[in-house]
Write a protein that binds this DNA or RNA. Structure first.
Lengths: 241, 241
DNA sequence: CGGGAGGTTGATCACCATCAACAACCGTGG
DNA sequence: CCACGGTTGTTGATGGTGATCAACCTCCCG
């Protein structure tokens, strides 16, 4: 099923390069070059806007990564989206943002005026595509939050950063004996926990356990090598044995 | 009896009447009247389509209610959206549906051809609005699934059916001493549980407990009277004490 | 070398899932 | 009308998963 694939692409990894094809439309490109559009850079863990702020702009990630989150009054936090290069955010229905937005790492954004977007039909349709993609991604994430075990959540999260794998039309390993992959998270344990609906301790424990069992290897805290991608994939809960 | 449930905005309840203003745009109306558009009726718990089916149509609920859900291979189910009159669904990014769709009660739908939608820019913009609304709704639901207790989940779910209340700009009770509301769920306990990321037993227990504590009263299993809406609202976790 | 933030590990507990039995409800047919 | 079987919902007993509390470690960076 191609859609799951697209869902994964939509929530791309936090990397340095924009994904190919993510913003390839000509009309969108012209909005990008509009003079009211500007470029802005942030450092890691900077707030871009708060929930409740007036939603005047639309943002596109050029390089780096960001997250959207909501807070409950007692301080509980839920990260609702993790975004990478090419992803759009800040397009809320209403006049106010429904989430806070924060960078994960040093990030540069394109900042569009809302009015600009509303004038261009090409921009509109690009926005629609992104929104629909996000709906799919959120559906997938709802399954994770509502029905998966801690182990499955972490495995699913890690698989997300492996291109071409873990989806329904997974190719399987290119090389049977060397089915490895390396990835950098660019998120703290707290951010992961808040995204996965877990605590920091549980995330840490699961990762340690995966390491102990030889599924992954930790180069640094946020630099992980997956020893056998297929094994990790089995742990996600989304695929039949 | 006229249930209270006709007025909630983004995530409307399952009721008999379409929400006012939900589809009031002229352009959308014209697509509705296109000859390729047809009307279709379903009985309760009928499948509209399965995850993975070709996505040829777009659906709008006229009367009744439906849900979208995803299944894991071992049978775990997560209901990702609950939809009422005026709501659109079936608009996935890709060629295949990313969720299954099923009616909750007897339902009539408008069925649009995808190609029809893609031709009309008015339809496009209506679709975008709906998609953005759904993204917001999903964000809220992610908080529920990731961070709320069983009690808070059920309370949040019930509050959703009370118009003009439980939102940020809640008016407070009209009448201090008679802050009640009546609602019909139109969902089985299993459907609620799968939506809230709980088990059927937990949902049942929480509801029994609310009854015991005098927060609600059960007329029938899916017909509930809220004795003090404000009390219920306190239990949702979304509002400071 | 020292301090601090972020991460790990251990012990314990609580919430909710699971398993199991039972009750209420509903339509059907005698 | 009641008996019935099946479906749906409730309640109880028990256990497991993951939260909580607390101590410690490890990596940076001055």
């Amino acid at each position: 099923m191609a859609h799951v694939d697209a869902g994964f692409e939509a929530r791309s990894t936090v990397s340095d390069q924009p994904r190919a094809g993510a913003s390839g439309e000509a009309g969108w490109e012209s909005v990008r070059q509009s003079q009211s559009t500007r470029r802005q850079t942030y450092r890691a863990h900077d707030v871009i806007y708060f929930e409740g702020d007036d939603a005047r702009h639309l943002y596109e990630i050029v390089t780096g990564g960001a997250m959207l989150y909501k807070l409950l009054p007692d301080g509980r936090r839920q990260v609702v989206e993790v975004l990478g290069p090419g992803d759009l955010f800040g397009f809320d229905m209403d006049a106010q943002h429904d989430c806070s937005a924060e960078t994960l790492v040093a990030t540069t954004l394109m900042v569009f005026n809302r009015s600009e977007i509303e004038r261009s039909s090409a921009a509109q349709s690009h926005l629609t595509r992104c929104a629909l993609q996000q709906v799919c991604a959120m559906h997938e994430h709802a399954v994770l939050l509502g029905r998966k075990s801690a182990y499955e959540r972490v495995a699913t999260f890690l698989m997300r950063f492996v291109p071409e794998r873990g989806t329904v039309n997974c190719k399987g390993p290119d090389d049977e004996d060397n089915d490895t992959g390396s990835l950098r998270l660019n998120m703290t344990r707290q951010e992961m926990a808040d995204y996965l609906g877990l605590t920091i301790e549980t995330v840490s424990r699961v990762i340690s356990d995966m390491k102990r069992k030889g599924v992954i290897r930790l180069e640094k805290h946020d630099q992980i090598t997956i020893n056998r991608i297929c094994s990790l994939c089995q742990l996600t809960g989304t695929h039949a044995d």
